[in-house]
Simulated assay, not measured.
Amino acid sequence: MKQQRRNYGQYCGLAGALDVVGERWTLLIVRELLTGPCRYNELQANLPGIGTNLLAERLRFLVDTGLVRQRAKDGSKVKMYELTTQGEGLREPVLALARWGLGLLGAPTSEDVVRPRWGALAVEAMIDPSLAGPDERYEFRIDDEVFHIDVTDGKVSVRHGKSALDPALVVTTDARTFVEIGSGRLSPLEATLTHRLTMDGDPEATLRCSRLLGLVG
Rank of each mutant, 00 (worst) to 15 (best):
residue 191 A to E: 15
residue 189 L to M: 13
residue 113 V to L: 06
residue 129 P to H: 13
residue 136 E to D: 15
residue 162 K to T: 12
residue 149 I to K: 12
residue 83 L to S: 04
residue 197 L to K: 13
residue 11 Y to N: 14
residue 97 L to D: 15
residue 114 V to N: 03
residue 200 D to E: 12
residue 32 E to R: 08
residue 160 H to E: 00
residue 122 A to S: 15
residue 216 V to D: 15
residue 177 T to G: 00
residue 153 D to N: 08
residue 62 L to N: 04
residue 214 G to P: 04
residue 169 L to C: 07
residue 212 L to T: 11
residue 71 R to C: 04
residue 2 K to P: 12
residue 25 W to L: 06
residue 40 Y to N: 11
residue 182 G to C: 06
residue 117 R to T: 14
residue 94 V to H: 01
residue 202 D to R: 03
residue 76 S to H: 10
residue 119 G to T: 02
residue 1 M to A: 11
residue 192 T to M: 13
residue 204 E to D: 10
residue 47 L to E: 09
residue 158 V to I: 15
residue 55 L to H: 02
residue 168 A to M: 02
residue 68 V to S: 02
residue 202 D to C: 03
residue 148 H to S: 07
residue 145 E to T: 01
residue 16 G to V: 08
residue 162 K to E: 15
residue 99 R to P: 06
residue 24 R to V: 02
residue 145 E to R: 01
residue 76 S to M: 08
residue 85 T to G: 01
residue 73 K to W: 08
residue 69 R to Q: 09
residue 76 S to A: 06
residue 183 S to P: 03
residue 59 L to R: 04
residue 189 L to A: 15
residue 118 W to R: 12
residue 55 L to G: 06
residue 179 V to G: 03
residue 142 I to G: 04
residue 44 Q to N: 12
residue 2 K to W: 08
residue 51 G to S: 09
residue 5 R to H: 11
residue 106 G to L: 00
residue 60 R to M: 14
residue 177 T to Y: 03
residue 102 L to F: 08
residue 91 R to Y: 03
residue 101 G to W: 04
residue 155 K to M: 10
residue 7 N to M: 14
residue 159 R to K: 10
residue 158 V to F: 14
residue 206 T to G: 15
residue 104 L to P: 01
residue 163 S to Q: 11
residue 42 E to V: 14
residue 215 L to G: 08
residue 152 T to M: 11
residue 65 T to I: 14
residue 138 Y to D: 04
residue 206 T to V: 12
residue 128 D to Q: 13
residue 91 R to T: 03
residue 201 G to Q: 15
residue 73 K to R: 09
residue 55 L to D: 02
residue 125 A to S: 13
residue 114 V to I: 06
residue 162 K to G: 10
residue 53 N to A: 14
residue 167 P to C: 06
residue 111 E to N: 00
residue 98 A to C: 10
residue 41 N to I: 14
residue 176 R to E: 07
residue 1 M to I: 12
residue 124 E to H: 11
residue 25 W to R: 04
residue 56 A to V: 02
residue 61 F to E: 10
residue 87 G to M: 00
residue 31 R to G: 05
residue 94 V to Q: 01
residue 10 Q to N: 06
residue 144 D to W: 09
residue 132 A to S: 05
residue 85 T to E: 05
residue 128 D to N: 14
residue 51 G to W: 03
